[in-house]
């Protein structure tokens, strides 16, 4: 579905190809996966690895 600028989604219009971004944004579970995976990798896992690598004081 495209952004027409108005609420004009007449049922007699031919079906349009749904763009990739629209399909992504219409899938809450894909958004859920991305929204958990990205910060989990970039913030949590990377951060935990950084702390785990701090040498223990003798």
């Amino acid at each position: 579905m495209t952004d027409t600028g108005q609420d004009t989604r007449a049922s007699d219009q031919p079906a349009e190809r749904v763009p990739f971004m629209q399909r992504l944004l219409d899938n809450p579970f894909l958004l859920l996966f991305l929204g958990v995976a990205v910060p989990a990798v970039l913030y949590l896992m990377w951060g935990i690895m950084e702390v785990a690598q701090i040498p223990i004081a003798p």
Binding site: L31, L34, G35, V38, P39, L42, Y43, G47, E50, V51
Partner: peptide
């Protein structure tokens, strides 16, 4: 927001010793 807002948490750790600048600056 979904992809990047959560990692703003890193600003609380910007003066922690032992965590690399790469992690801090990227996040």
């Amino acid at each position: 927001y979904i992809l990047f807002l959560q990692i703003a948490a890193a600003h609380h750790l910007l003066v922690e010793p032992g965590i690399s600048s790469e992690w801090k600056i990227f996040n």
